[in-house]
């Protein structure tokens, strides 16, 4: 039998390098969708989230999915545990005494030189890939497409508490008065929807430990704080893959923007 001679110089490359990223992604997507059909919807969310990949703290996002894209920066070292934010939150959002939407954690490091106590405010991280929204059977928890806030439609909440189980940040509690799960909504219902610019906690914070704003706006203070490489910015439990919108950074001195208390109107 006659074989054609192999022309090694002009051989078309078939290695993985010649496959474009787009091609690869499309192939993976197709595979995920087919698997999704058989997996009874379990994979659906994985597919739908592919396009919403969002800034980690290392790589800045080129584009934020929401406009405005509300976000908060917590400057850890500035928190003095005065708890005014907690009081304001309870008052503004009618949070019952047994629950909380925001809280200040206290950490003591006895071996540290100098300052030994540190405070860390926590609240709902308004994740871009929220496990709670995926877990909710009735879409009572949802991601508000206008501003990226994870909100709750109380009348739809059946009280299965799957979202409380799903949340890696312990941000949810069951509100007996509302007969629904309740959580921080960046004061959307109580303040932002009424024209106010700041959340209650950010507005009362005397040291500027909580800075609230629109991260999709390059002129916004939050954008400026996150999009820099001089100070480290991090999110809580990044390995979980929730893509939080609450960022943390260390600050013991006033920020480069000389910001103590965040003005309500900017």
């Amino acid at each position: 039998m006659d074989f054609n001679k192999i022309d090694l110089d002009n051989l078309k490359e078939e290695s993985l390098d010649s496959v474009s990223g787009l091609e690869r992604r499309n192939f993976l997507k197709m595979g995920l969708m087919i698997t999704g059909l058989f997996a009874g919807g379990k994979i659906l969310s994985v597919v739908s989230k592919v396009d919403e990949v969002f800034a980690s703290t290392v790589n800045f996002a080129e584009q934020y999915p929401y406009k405005p894209h509300y976000s908060m920066v917590i400057r850890e070292g500035l928190c003095i545990d005065c708890q005014r934010c907690m009081v304001a939150c309870h008052k503004t959002n009618n949070v019952p005494e047994y629950g909380w939407r925001t809280k200040i954690l206290e950490k003591i490091t006895p071996d540290a030189i100098g300052r030994k106590r540190g405070f860390m405010p926590i609240l709902c991280n308004q994740c871009n890939n929220p496990p709670c929204v995926r877990a909710c059977p009735t879409r009572a928890s949802y991601k508000d497409q206008r501003n990226g806030i994870v909100r709750i439609d109380s009348k739809k909440c059946i009280g299965c508490k799957a979202c409380m189980l799903a949340c890696p940040y312990d941000a949810r509690y069951f509100n007996e008065e509302k007969h629904a799960v309740d959580k921080c909504d960046f004061c959307y219902e109580s303040r932002l929807s009424k024209g106010k610019k700041l959340t209650a906690c950010a507005a009362v914070c005397p040291t500027g430990a909580r800075i609230f704003g629109d991260i999709s706006d390059p002129n916004n203070v939050v954008y400026k704080m996150v999009h820099q490489i001089e100070r480290e910015v991090w999110v809580l439990r990044p390995a979980v893959g929730t893509k939080p919108n609450v960022f943390y950074m260390k600050a013991t001195n006033p920020s480069p923007w000389a910001l103590r208390r965040q003005p309500d109107v900017r």
């Binding site: 919807g41 379990k42 969310s45 995926r134 059977p137 739809k156 007969h179």
Partner: peptide
């Protein structure tokens, strides 16, 4: 265990979340 079982009967039907295992399970 469910806080509002009667709401479930309504909203499971008219507002399903197909990404939720809970919904599929029920």
């Amino acid at each position: 265990d469910i806080e509002n079982p009667f709401r479930m009967a309504i909203w499971n039907v008219i507002s399903p979340n197909f990404a939720s295992n809970m919904w599929w399970m029920g």
